[in-house]
Each structure stands twice: as C-alpha cells, then as structure tokens.
Design a protein around this nucleic acid. Structure first.
Lengths: 132, 132
DNA sequence: TTCATCTATATGCATACTGCACCTAGATGA
DNA sequence: TCATCTAGGTGCAGTATGCATATAGATGAA
C-alpha cells in the first residue's frame, strides 16, 4: 500500500507536547545509530502509534539536531534500497537528552498540578464531571 | 512596578504543552465568572508561576474560546478601574473541558511511556545518565 | 526494457501557537 | 496635570507541524 504513513491520520486533537519527537529520537539514537526511515518505524514504542509521526517532521528534526551538534550523520549504503543518512548521538546530544528528560519531568509535574486542581475543584462542584 | 508581567521571563525552555493554558482557563471559569486580568493572576495555581503566561496569549485564547462558543462574555463595570470583559463557561465549554482532561490524561500516558522507555534503556546502557 | 512499487530523504506551503513590543483608554491619586 | 495602575488589545516574527509533493535509487513483474 503506497503512502501507508500519515494518510488520513487527522491529528487535530490539540494534545501534543511541543517538539516531543525530539527527545524520542534522541533516546532511540542513544547507544545505537539509525536512519530516519527506521527511526520513524521505531517511534511506535512511545505510545503514539495511533497518530504516527509525519516523516517530514522526523527528517527536519534530525537535521535540526545535527545543526546544533547533537547528532552527527554519514551516508551509508544499505543492503537494499537507496542510501541512508545514518545518525549517531554526540556527547552533547547525550547531555541534551538529559536536559529534555528533566524538562519533561517538569511538564509532568505541571500536568499533575492541573489534574489536582481539576479533582479538587470537581469535588466541590460535582457537576459535569467524571468523578474518579 | 509597571510591566511586572512577562518582562524578562525568557520562556525558551522547549517544554510546553500546546495550548495548555486553554484547559487551565476553562477550569478557572468552571463555576465562576472571571475576566482576563484576574484569570492571569489565578493561573499561578497551575504550577508554572516561574514562567507566568503572557497577557496577550490569555486574551487571545479567551476570544478564541468565545468564537467557538465555549464561553460567553459581557462587559461589566468594576468597583474600580476600566470596564472588564467578564467570561462565563457555557455548557459546551464544560464538555470541551472534559475533552481536554481526557486529552491531557493521554498526554500523561505518552509521557510516562517515554519515561519507561528511558528508564529501561538506561538500565542497560548505564552511561551518561541520572541513575535513579 | 519498461513500469510500478518500495525505500529513503527532502522541500514548499499553509496554518497555528506564542513571546515580545507596543498601543488604547478609563480610573486614581499625587 | 501627569504618572501609574488596571484592563484589553494588535502586529510581527519565530517556531512547529501537517499535508502535498518532489526526487531518486532499488527491485521485481510484465
């Protein structure tokens, strides 16, 4: 099936963490080289397989990471198909991943801060809501 | 102090949930009318007081919510100062808030999916990382 | 050979969100 | 009169992203 990626995904949900694919790609590259097309397939591990990533986003993030020195790339011939641009995490990319993790932990705290506010509020105004 | 809001906040952290202020405003308006300037102050409850929101964002989100019928507004004279545009949550806005909560719970799941992947991976490659 | 398909990378365009600078304007008090 | 506070708003630029599309090598079928 041609165009099996990203046809009709309709990712209009509002939920999304800005540039969240970036830390996912960094993690996938941690300890293992890979290329864009393969990374695209492996992103399913991160639980958004229902709204898979668009390939253009992946390639652009990878180039951006390289521009900032967080990954390096080289062209490699595969066993089949066209040449691949294989990316590897750099030491500063490893640090950048650590930074992202701390950042996402902060996001998690803020998110739970919202959930707490929501729960507390709904215990008083018990209208319209999902009660636990 | 003039311009006490948003001067020098430097919100260049990368972490952020797209349009996250929207559900926060909806929750603040749940069961209680309010106006933009007041909402701006109350957003501190949600844990991002270190990077307070920009007022322009708040006003734009409120207008956008009204355009979509999730809130209604009326002009009201306050005890002091200029007139205020007071917003109230509509029934569909209440439903929209419920949708946002479900959406953020999904975000939370995805986030923890990332944390799990990270932790599992770092247990093998114990280099470069925050060990628990 | 020719052609469709798969793999792989990439660009162009439109839209959306946001930060920052700046503007308008009534109220208030020195 | 004038600065300041309260309150709401616009304009612009940068960033992120979805979708369509382009390019091109490899592969296998007709």
């Amino acid at each position: 099936m041609p165009g099996r990626r990203m046809r009709g995904a309709r990712n209009r949900c509002g939920r999304r963490i800005t540039r969240f694919l970036e830390p996912c790609l960094l993690l996938l590259l941690h300890g293992e080289e890979s290329h864009g097309y393969e990374l695209l397939d492996n992103l399913g591990r991160f639980g958004f397989s229902e709204n898979p990533a668009d390939s253009s986003t992946i390639y652009r993030i990878l180039r951006s990471l390289e521009d900032r020195g967080f990954v390096t790339s080289r062209w490699a011939e595969g066993d089949s198909g066209p040449a691949r641009r294989v990316y590897a995490l750099s030491p500063s990319g490893d640090e950048y991943l650590q930074m992202w993790v701390g950042d996402l932990e902060e996001t998690d705290r803020i998110l739970h801060c919202f959930f707490n506010e929501y729960r507390d509020h709904m215990e008083l105004h018990h209208s319209g809501g999902k009660k636990t």
